[in-house]
Design a protein around this nucleic acid. Structure first.
Lengths: 148, 148
DNA sequence: TCACATTTAATTGTTCGCAATTGAATCCCG
DNA sequence: CGGGATTCAATTGCGAACAATTAAATGTGA
């Protein structure tokens, strides 16, 4: 592809991904407002609903985020009584993140969210999963380059 | 899909898109550091290289961003002497964004960026364009819901 | 024409996201 | 055992991203 064409905004897959991430964020906003969560906070809760009582580092690896992002976010979730932060006794460098009863309970309220997003995306589950797999494969290749 | 499965992080296309956007950002970082640009600033420059002398609003529509994001970003580009902000005489509500000579010149330095990204994505142009088209179609459907 | 609505950027305040650094705990190796 | 390297979370500083509001300019209809 000629450099001129390559620099066109419309040809940039990165812009497609970037602008779609923001579009998702905007669609999620009214749904998550009802749960009292921001979108990144929702992702943290999704991760914790799968497995909690984990150090910040574990959460960071699952979400591709570092402590600079997670520490203040987790403090806000703690202030909202959704999680508890406890310094590990076994290894005092670690801070373990556990769900509170309210944090567990919020999962029920969140159950309807994916269905609403599916409707907004106006697409079959099969198609979305196929796209998701392609995008994840791309992400993993990009991350592989970073790891070198 | 059962609600339990739907809430799994791995099944969320939104998380796939979100985490891929961050992966792109990290791959772009070292390349854009050489141009003295952040990733959103690079997107603004891409848009301006296609068409400049445009009001902030026009830029916002092309990038799906509002003045709250663009105004400070454009001030930084102006401080770097890449663009000039001029209040329109025809309609004094508008501020027109034009490239400076340096802003135009930066395009040459940016020409090698897409090639580097292509290499990092370890994927053919054809495959990337196909993915891009799918993602853009999804974005447009999401934005359509927001417009209602 | 004139009051009122709309458009446009800018501003304010909150929350991410990350690089770089810090300080404490733990690991590892001689 | 001891000292330097490593790991982990927190902190600082900067740049997005967006909601809500503001102020000025323009448009519109009676």
């Amino acid at each position: 592809m000629a450099a001129d064409q390559a620099l066109r905004l419309d040809n940039q897959i990165c812009f497609a991904v970037y602008s779609t991430a923001h579009a998702f964020n905007r669609v999620y906003k009214p749904l998550l407002d009802r749960l009292g969560l921001t979108y990144p906070q929702y992702l943290v809760m999704l991760a914790l609903w799968e497995r909690d009582d984990v150090p910040v580092k574990d959460l960071g690896e699952r979400l591709f985020l570092d402590s600079g992002t997670l520490t203040p976010l987790l403090k806000r979730l703690e202030a909202a009584d959704l999680i508890k932060r406890t310094r590990s006794t076994a290894d005092e460098r670690q801070v373990l993140i556990a769900l509170t009863a309210q944090g567990h309970a919020l999962r029920d309220k969140a159950k309807s969210v994916p269905q609403s997003i599916l409707a907004a995306s106006d697409c079959s589950v099969r198609e979305l999963m196929a796209m998701k797999n392609e995008i994840v494969a791309l992400r993993d290749r990009l991350n592989a380059v970073l790891g070198e």
